[in-house]
């Protein structure tokens, strides 16, 4: 079993000019946890995920501060202006580090190994320099269990 067999080839992307709110709406609507970001030419320039959206709302300087003291009546976080955050462009907070890239012929086991070794949630399947598809951890788990289910004794 190789990458081509399990990848999602109709990749939904978002433009780098889109706002954080648009990115959030897209992710929530599609139930994806991340989408690739593309520039005007259609080249992938980064990735935006739930994690990036949460980071935008919870700045790093608060990482060591226990926030249990916030009352039920408080907004998400009084230190952050949620309305202003919604208008921030994706290009300014997306992650630019590229996803690990694999060829369509890469065995799924190798993709699984890369995901665990590099602690990444998804890999890009590249064919002739173009993004041909995305493989998520869910796709790998599906690939692992489906033959087990069909081959189970009984």
């Amino acid at each position: 079993m190789v990458a081509r067999d399990i990848m999602t080839s109709e990749v939904v992307t978002i433009g780098e000019q889109a706002t954080a709110r648009e990115a959030a709406d897209l992710l929530l609507r599609l139930r994806y946890d991340a989408v690739p970001v593309v520039n005007a030419a259609g080249d992938a320039v980064g990735i935006v995920s739930y994690e990036d959206l949460i980071r935008l709302a919870l700045p790093e300087y608060l990482d060591d501060v226990d926030l249990s003291f916030l009352p039920a009546s408080a907004p998400f976080l009084p230190a952050v202006d949620a309305a202003a955050i919604c208008d921030v462009q994706v290009a300014s907070f997306m992650r630019r580090d590229r996803m690990p890239e694999v060829s369509p012929e890469e065995p799924v086991a190798e993709i699984a190994r890369i995901m665990l070794r590099d602690n990444v949630r998804r890999v890009a399947v590249m064919e002739e320099g173009r993004l041909a598809g995305i493989i998520s951890r869910g796709d790998v788990v599906r690939a692992i269990v489906s033959p087990l289910m069909t081959c189970s004794p009984g």
Binding site: D66, S68, F69, L70, P78
Partner: peptide, 13 residues
Amino acid sequence: LRVLEFDESKAIH
């Protein structure tokens, strides 16, 4: 008054 709603006792974990 909003500041008075903060529960500082929860800061110590």
